[in-house]
């Protein structure tokens, strides 16, 4: 059985080590926070916060306290606030150990596309280009194929790039792959998924 969203998030949480400062993207990456367990992880929200807490209880929402997805959130006893230039200074400066992000396409050389589809409504890249260029490690969490069944792990991205050669590891519903010299390397497969099934679902070169 391929992993479901929560199992992918749980697997991605294993990438995080005690003491890390981490930025989580929108969607499945947000769920990773549910699986960090006892590890001491500090979440960054790029609109200007380290130490992001859970959603507030009803009636306790604060319009001055939101995450990068513009959702109301809470602070923790470790929280620090700062301005946007400082926030991206720590991102660009390589102080954030890892970013876990969703993607539309990843290429075998680590190219990432997740911000625009030509001909469709373009909303903007937000902080994604800064994150993938700056953080220590970029981990993509996404479905292995799109809704037509086509591989999202490609020899070359077809969509406009968010970053060139930036992805380190890809966690899909079928397994885990690393970007290495010459292509992608299978790290593990989801329980019940064979290496053959993963290869068949992948357009990118597997080395």
């Amino acid at each position: 059985m391929p992993w479901d969203r929560n199992q992918m998030a749980e697997r991605a949480a294993q990438e995080l080590e005690d003491g890390m400062y981490v930025n989580l993207g929108i969607g499945i990456p947000t769920l990773v926070a549910n699986y960090v367990g006892d590890k001491d992880i500090t979440l960054q929200s790029e609109n200007g916060m380290l130490g992001m807490g859970p959603f507030p209880y009803e009636g306790e929402e604060d319009p001055d306290l939101i995450n990068a997805g513009k959702q109301t959130i809470t602070e923790l006893n470790r929280t620090a606030y700062f301005d946007s230039a400082t926030s991206f200074g720590m991102i660009r400066g390589g102080k954030i150990a890892a970013a876990i992000l969703g993607a539309m396409e990843v290429a075998e050389n680590g190219d990432l596309a997740n911000w625009m589809i030509p001909g469709k409504l373009v909303k903007g890249m937000g902080g994604a280009m800064d994150l993938v260029a700056g953080v220590g490690r970029v981990i993509v969490v996404m479905d292995h194929t799109n809704k037509h069944g086509d591989s999202k792990l490609l020899k070359e991205c077809t969509l406009p790039l968010t970053g060139k050669g930036v992805v380190d590891r890809i966690i899909t519903n079928l397994g885990v792959l690393d970007v290495v010299e010459g292509g992608l390397k299978i790290v593990e497969t989801a329980e019940g998924v064979t290496e053959e099934e993963l290869r068949t679902a992948t357009q990118a070169t597997i080395v």
């Binding site: 946007s84 230039a85 926030s87 991206f88 991102i91 660009r92 937000g126 902080g127 800064d130 700056g134």
Partner: peptide
């Protein structure tokens, strides 16, 4: 990009007409 926009503002305010970024 969001960080580039923030830094463009900060730089302008600091008298820096240009900067290099990855």
């Amino acid at each position: 990009p969001q960080g580039t926009l923030a830094e463009r503002m900060r730089a302008g305010g600091c008298g820096i007409p240009g900067f290099y970024t990855k």
